[in-house]
Design a protein around this nucleic acid. Sequence first.
DNA 1: GCCGTATGTCACCAACTAGTGACAAATGGA
DNA 2: TCCATTTGTCACTAGTTGGTGACATACGGC
Lengths: 207, 207
Amino acid sequence: MPARKKAAPAKATRDREATEQRFIEAAARVIARDGAAGLGVNAIAAEAGADKKLIYRYFGGLDGLLEAMGANTAVWIGDALSASKGDYGQRMGAVFAAYAGNLRGDPVLQKLLAWELAGPSDTLRRIDAARSKAMYAVMPKLRGDEKPPEGVDAPAVNAILLAALHYLTLRGATMGGFSGLSLKTEADWKRAMAAFDGLLARTYETD
Amino acid sequence: MPARKKAAPAKATRDREATEQRFIEAAARVIARDGAAGLGVNAIAAEAGADKKLIYRYFGGLDGLLEAMGANTAVWIGDALSASKGDYGQRMGAVFAAYAGNLRGDPVLQKLLAWELAGPSDTLRRIDAARSKAMYAVMPKLRGDEKPPEGVDAPAVNAILLAALHYLTLRGATMGGFSGLSLKTEADWKRAMAAFDGLLARTYETD
DNA sequence: GCCGTATGTCACCAACTAGTGACAAATGGA
DNA sequence: TCCATTTGTCACTAGTTGGTGACATACGGC
């Protein structure tokens, strides 16, 4: 065998767009599997089967890659938009239920939410920005024309209920339950959401 | 100057108990400051001003040290035990309010709770064990003889409300708010807790 | 065909990590 | 006083990290 220095490199497809996509999907897989900890160029490059150098060349670094990944996460809401009817409480109940189901099936979003609670991070804040913007834009449409009953601080109440939803979802995924409430099976979640609906209905009921 | 190889070591007090305590307090400071990320023997030893070798000698490693730190965290509950009176809902309201205040002032506990959501960890589970045990033991005493109204799944409702409290506290500490609800100032929290009390009262009110 | 450029690969660096062996020095008992 | 044990210090290994420079190779325009 003559003077070829290296044996046989250049197996890859030599397609920038495809490679970028591989990195983005690899980043999502790493986050879904390991969470924010252990998230780095080495792990992502290994997962993608490509060289980390390309992360710097194509995305400018880890931050750029994560931002691109966040931009690809677009859907995840608005499903329950058409089916919502009834008074304010019923509509919000439908929204919360749909959102809870989506969140429970999206490990990447779960890890992102958990990461937010670990501490402030510029990277994370940029990833989150697009999502939050979409969320706030959709909210008025979800509400429709219905108004919450007087004497109820609806924004605060909704934030509290959404917070509970987030926390219970994360605890269910990591510890399988919280404060004596099991959150493993579908039946567990049915019970939890029933209590949730009761809470919501009693607060927003129109006397 | 004769053949003394090293200049002048041995400044420390040569007191094992005091050194162990220094490590435990240093670990708590590091967690409060940096959270679970960046938590390691090097950082803790530097914070304590002692050698990391002693962590292995005295605690058997990082896990042992963190466990000892968790064991020292004992108080933080039961303050609102005597003052609670009224029906079930009112008693629970007092408990939640006291708990929220304690949690908001305890950055170490906050980081521990956030860490739990990042993923399962044997270390963490052991740290948490003692705390949870104390919590569950106190609960019946907090309730007193009052019983929740029929038709309400009180354990589930309480778990939901406690989940919301945890999540809002963590979001307030890291991002300063959640879902449009600001959680920075005392006034912000007063508003949040007012909505919280409303939620609780409407659910546990005896018709 | 030829050649510049884009794409991919590898080797290396400095800095950090967890963990350990060897040693100095203070303490306390005999 | 002597000596064993404990307490503390330091140096070192091996591995991982983020990041970069140098290089090989394929592609596309001319």
